[in-house]
Amino acid sequence: MSGKTSIYRFMSAGCNGCDVQILECLVPRYKLADLGVEVVFTPEEANVLAITGGINVKGREELKKAYEKLKPPKLVVAVGNCAITKEIFDKGYPMVGPPDQIIPVNFYISGCPPRPQAIVTAVAKALGATLEEKEEYWATPEGFRGKHEFDSEKCMGCGACAQVCSSDAIDVLEDNGKRFIKVDYGHCSFCAFCQDECPTEAIKLTKEYHMLTDNRNTANVTNEVDLFKCASCGTYFIPARQVEWALQRIENEVSEYKDFHRNLRTAMELCHTCRRKISNIRNAKKLLSQLSPKVRAV
């Protein structure tokens, strides 16, 4: 983009955090001015629109108006996860966004909020400029809660992370004998509850904070595990590793059940539907007899 870049910030229905980060970008340390970028006060003066927040009923028309007034090339940047997916406010009743449902959006900067460093770097990238990345302040400290990473050796696909997730950012999908744990980090509040709750410490929030994309469907990290087939009816129903993990835990923690181990395994290899079919002893015997020749002798 040639000429001066003038950004107008528009906010509706976010927490204000992203707005503060944009203000912080004006501090010389972040070198926003070095890129020839200024923040202006009216949409008429601007050629770039930075949106924060997920847009509610009251903000919708205002957003359209602001977009119309923008000077060419009318670049629109969604700053922060609210502006990408409405994040934690997704199911809020006054919400009508995300913004790209209302006006065209060119770039998405993920984060909650994105660091000023991420915003400035994203702006530079969008402008085709390069920034010096030497200074220590571009680095993230230990313990930073950034983009997720799976340890595919450890993840057993149990979906505990999806259950505790504060922002409905994790989907558990199944297809053709596989289970996918999909973290939509554009929908994530970076609370790290998933990391805290994961029984096998398989999911981690890393120090990576550059999460710029022009296609919001790419803002995710996915892990894949194999599913196990029901020993009776043959449908896929539970991750194979989860069965092993559960049995191992029973063996370690309640060793008095050790003797039942084989029976437990047999029971766990049945899907819910098949288990529910057991309504009386005769049923149970019939089912078990299909599975194990030993039962027949009983």
Binding site: G54, Y93, P94
Partner: peptide, 8 residues
């Protein structure tokens, strides 16, 4: 008010 209302 209400431009930031999110139904929290």
């Amino acid at each position: 008010l209400g431009y930031v209302h999110r139904g929290i």
